[in-house]
Computed example of a mutant assay.
Amino acid sequence: MGMNAVFPPSPESLARIAKSSDADVLSRTIIAPHLNRGRGAQSNQTSKFEPYSREAVDDGWGNLEALESVKTNVRDEKSKSIITKNDSPDIHFDRSINPYRGCEHGCVYCFARPTHTYLGHSAGLDFERELYAKTNAADRLYEAWLNKKYSVKPIAIGTNTDPYQPIERDKKIMRALLEKFVAHKHPITITTKSSLIVRDLDLLTELAKQNLVHVTMSITSLDHILSRKLEPRASSPARRLEAVELLTAAGIPVSVAVAPIIPAINDAEIEKILAAASANGASGAAMIMLRLPGEVRQLFREWLLRHYPDRLRHVLNLVRDVRQGRENDPRFHSRMAGQGPYAFSLQRRFDLALERYGLKKRLPHLRTDLFTPPKVEDPQLSLF
């Protein structure tokens, strides 16, 4: 059986979906479950920038090649630069670092998936298995700081792909970056959904002592089964909460992101997640509504078809309800929160829970005055 073997939904599911406007979901080739264990995407459509598309079919010769093809492949990449700048009004930082391209966590809803198509890969399964490690990230960061025009502001890490995804255990790129931040006393913010972050408690503690670091732990659900479906290779909810507790105990300011909130899937858990976050020492929290940009729209519909076919119409109708009739609203100031009665009710519940569990504290302002830039080795002798 080829890699993209079609997974047939049950007759009941077919009947329900056939009546909906989402029947075109079935036109996609969905990978069979036994060939796709531990992955979030259900298909691997060719990049939209490629001149030809490929579609595997059942040739009757077994599935050994298909099983081999879903393994994770990691390529070392030498980056020309490492700091990315942005001017979006929806986020609190203007510069970021992403040590990896692609992410093995496999979050089906990840808004970074479409970026993989620029590399000639699929935003689906390829995003989770064709990974790039920026092995010279620490050196490029050091070079950026050598520039006399460099202005110090907090650098955000983990805003696109997770810096503590499984391959970080071997690559240790994030740890190398942290060593630079500690040595030169530069402020940093980290977002992750991995308990691997506690490996670097020693470096994070040094930064926290000088008010140079914030950590945000993303927790989408406390339900282990749902978490495995949404984020198959991310740390379990219990491990993430344990990481929050350990980080807080070490004096590191931690907030929790309830992100994304998916209508009729995890929206009932808002209060539970915030209660657990508070109990484990988190100081603050934020929420983000589900976004479905580009290829993520179809990937998420396929995920619903696989795991919650009976809710497919209901979930997508609610998504459209908060996005003014569309499944994605790219406009600034609304894309993160959504609009309409349903979005308002979720925000109201979230705000009340923040009050109830004491999560409205402001994280301390990160210092920028401690930065010590690298010394430039100048071969020219001084006159004095």
Results as ranks from 00 to 15, higher is better:
M1C: 05
V6S: 09
L14R: 06
A15K: 08
I17Y: 01
D22Q: 03
S27D: 08
I31C: 04
A32G: 06
A32P: 05
G38N: 13
Q42W: 04
E55S: 09
A66W: 02
K78I: 13
T84Y: 05
S88N: 15
S88L: 15
I91F: 11
I91K: 06
H92R: 12
D94W: 00
G102A: 11
H105W: 01
V108N: 08
R113K: 13
S122Y: 02
A123L: 11
L125E: 00
F127D: 06
F127Y: 13
E128H: 08
E130M: 13
E130L: 09
L131K: 12
T135S: 13
D139W: 04
Y142C: 00
K149A: 15
Y150S: 11
I155P: 05
A156M: 12
D162F: 07
D162A: 10
P163Q: 12
D170W: 06
A176L: 14
L177N: 00
E179V: 15
V182S: 11
K185P: 02
K185W: 01
H186E: 01
H186P: 02
T189W: 01
S194A: 08
D200Q: 01
D200L: 06
E206H: 06
L207C: 07
I219F: 01
T220E: 10
L222Q: 00
E231N: 07
R240V: 03
R240G: 05
V244S: 11
A250L: 06
I252S: 00
V258R: 04
I261H: 03
I262M: 13
E269V: 10
I270N: 02
K272R: 11
A275T: 05
S278Y: 05
G284Q: 01
I288F: 08
L290K: 05
R291S: 10
Q298S: 02
E302L: 14
Y308D: 06
P309M: 01
L312H: 05
R313Y: 02
V315L: 07
N317V: 08
R326Q: 14
E327L: 12
E327A: 01
E327D: 12
N328C: 00
D329V: 07
R331S: 13
F332P: 03
F332R: 09
F332N: 14
R335K: 15
R335D: 00
Q339F: 04
Q339P: 05
L346N: 09
Q347L: 14
F350P: 04
F350I: 05
A353L: 11
R356Q: 15
L363W: 10
S382G: 12
